[in-house]
Design a protein around this nucleic acid. Structure first.
Ligand SMILES: [Mn+2]
Ligand SMILES: [Mn+2]
Ligand SMILES: [Zn+2]
Ligand SMILES: [Zn+2]
Lengths: 136, 136
DNA sequence: CCCAAGAGTGAGAATGGTTGTCGTTCTAGC
DNA sequence: GCTAGAACGACAACCATTCTCACTCTTGGG
């Protein structure tokens, strides 16, 4: 196997993600490396993130504004996402429980799962109020 | 309520989505309208899709290549998505069953759900083979 | 009818996150 | 040391989406 032991550059990315409060975008990671005098090309950050993803160490999701945010695989978080304003708040619920239940080999058909995304899209309470306000 | 009755322009978008085999991107919808001599500005397609989404008639998800694909809300489909090549194949499994089970008001806290996304990311069988091939 | 106000529209420019390019640098192995 | 190949970084290119703004359509009062 080639990519099971990430190189030091990628270890640093993983460390930053684990230290971070929430999810970080590639550009935020790039900035944090810069702040720590560990300048790195943005392309390298993207390359490292892709490898970490394929190694099963990092997961990601795409925000509605187009940017991708990354987090350690072990942090199993999901969100309520507003289709109006794009804000997202934590959703303390995972459809797979802790175990990867329900994912029997029959369904996967040779596919090797690494991580999952589960998000509920709708209207946040603030955007619902605005909507009502326009009517009255 | 203002937006519960979509305008004809948006009805046409919804119709195209319902007729389509799979999910369609905004640009594909724009093209189909053009093909049907119903020229429409691309901006209008995007505007209509956003309204249909907020009206609870259309759902969407972001592909790894950056484009967003749309489908009628009633079509409840999920996917296995390869982090290497970006391909996605159907996953005949929904974590919410048919009912919106598990989504009690306590968790939602005033958030009004419209649709959900659930995707499993990993390596498709083809990309696993390539990986092995490089080792040998 | 006529007109004005507001909503809706469309063509094209602007945006911006991500990916590609390619010359340079680093790392092993000899 | 020296060389082949991998890794890297600065910058250009890409492209889906959003923004802009002038134009058109609708509608209701005069
Ligand atoms: Mn989960
Ligand atoms: Mn579902
Ligand atoms: Zn909102
Ligand atoms: Zn693949």
């Amino acid at each position: 196997m080639a990519s099971t032991i990430p190189l030091p550059r990628q270890q640093r990315l993983l460390q930053l993600l684990r230290l971070a409060e929430g999810e970080l975008s590639a550009q935020e990671l790039h900035q944090r490396l810069r702040d720590a005098q560990q300048g790195t090309g943005l392309a390298t950050v993207y390359r490292g993130l892709k490898l970490l993803q394929q190694a099963g160490l990092v997961r990601c999701r795409k925000l509605s504004n187009g940017e991708t945010v990354y987090a350690p695989l072990e942090r199993d978080e999901h969100h309520l996402i507003c289709v109006q304003c794009g804000s997202s708040q934590p959703l303390p619920l995972c459809p797979l429980g802790t175990s990867s239940l329900g994912l029997n080999a029959v369904l996967l058909q040779g596919f090797r799962p690494l991580f999952h995304t589960f998000e509920i899209h709708g209207l946040c309470s603030r955007c619902q109020q605005v909507e009502v306000g326009l009517d009255g």
